[in-house]
Amino acid sequence: MIRSLLMMILLVLGTISLQAGNDPGYKIGDQATDFKLKNVDGKLVSLADYKDAKGYIIIFTCNHCPFSIAYEDRIIELHRKFAPKGFPVIAINPNDPEVQPDDSFAAMQARASEKSFPFAYLMDEGQKIYPQYGATRTPHVFILDKNRVVQYIGAIDDNHSDPSAVKRRYVEDAVAALEAGREPEETFTRAVGCTIKAKK
């Protein structure tokens, strides 16, 4: 009896570690980690700081990537629309500035001030957070609910190059669903983006 129980436990553990090894990063339903990262204003920001949040729109994005730039205004709009409803945008630059100097902290500060970013724009210093989330590109969105459970992973919408031709607003739809107490219909989408820059 004890032996078979042990076997069971070993089997389960083995499966878990295999899964973790094969496919890093969060899946829908996983609870995401909180973090403490430096904002462009110099202050450290954590999800726990957002006392009234009903959820979080975490966007891995950066200064240099043309796809991130194409989405800048739409990210600002998302924050303006949803932060008052309890779903703030939290932008995180995952890139190593030594590999991509345009994504340095000073460059982030400059861009945030030029565009008057209304949301936190954080530096993933040491690049510890993006691998935990499983971000692979910029921009890459993770929507969490109040309990930091991942509810959506993917693109902002279905047309990066022409905002006026967008047909599907994935992030807006997902947040609207959470707001209404439902699960998002579309929970995973893909988009072309820039690789996250890290030393090899």
């Binding site: 890459h140 279905d158 047309n159 990066h160 190059s161 022409d162 893909r190 988009a191 072309v192």
Partner: peptide
Amino acid sequence: TDPDANAWIPRIAEEWSGAIP
């Protein structure tokens, strides 16, 4: 120039997140 990347990316490779190269 097909903007609907969510539709065509998995037709290239199911495992592709969309990052280039």
